[in-house]
Amino acid sequence: MTQHAALSVAHNRAVLVEQLRRLLPGIADFHKTLPFGLPAIDSRLPKGGLACGALHEIVPAPNAIPAAFGFIAAILARHFSSVAPIVFVLPACGFSPSGRLHGHGLHALGLDPARLILVETAHRRDALWAIAETVRSGAPAAVAGFIDKLDLKSSQRLHLFAAEAALPLFLLRPAQNLESSAAATRWRVGTAEAARDRFGLITRPRWQLQLERARNGRPGEWVVEYDHVAHRFSLAAALADPACARGTSKKADRQAHCA
């Protein structure tokens, strides 16, 4: 009897929490998530995936801006296959040391470049304004941007806008000046040796992912690879033995020395 009562209390509480959640802005859509399809990663994230109406920070490891951008493109390609456009807010000078975005390269990652709308801004102030404006309009399916410096207040604003519009917002942040922010997750993306087929041709890019911060989640570290045809992530470690990988790199070392 007491057990039954306790159960009903728990049930009532769950209903109440659900009702309260609905009252908060944007929380109704909060349970819409973007799962990776990898239990190892998804189990670390609340609700089993990247929250849809939230700000996510992607931080590249040194010299890994292309990898970080590739990771964003892979997530976008995997989850947003409808016709709604995706907006990229980029500095007008490109990613200054690493060149400009190449449409054919995006296509090679499975993201249709015709769906992209590129917004180029000259100053950080304009970039922040453009990102906020884009997110608030609710018109695109997703927004990605590059911001070199972001204070806590701006990140809170952006996060709120994203929650209200139920849009995922990905911000690429350079690693030099990372302030605390209101982002739901922070990923550090590094490079890793690509997956090759038996002829030694690169088939799938691999990235070293580090979930540094996750609100209501647990951090973790993985090496994932991405298949641009199937839009699928998979764990690299499950396929390639780390010891084996080390072996190849040693072999390559030796070859390099010979050369």
């Binding site: 709604a84 907006v87 449409g103 470049p113 709308i117 917004v119 304004w129 453009a130 018109a139």
Partner: peptide, 27 residues
């Protein structure tokens, strides 16, 4: 409606950032 909202957004971005700031890839 989506298209219209997109157009509204692009207009707003253009007025502030300049006419050539909002672009897309063309093969």
């Amino acid at each position: 409606d989506k298209t219209e909202r997109c157009a509204v957004l692009i207009d707003a971005l253009r007025q502030r950032l300049g006419p050539s700031s909002v672009r897309r890839f063309k093969a």
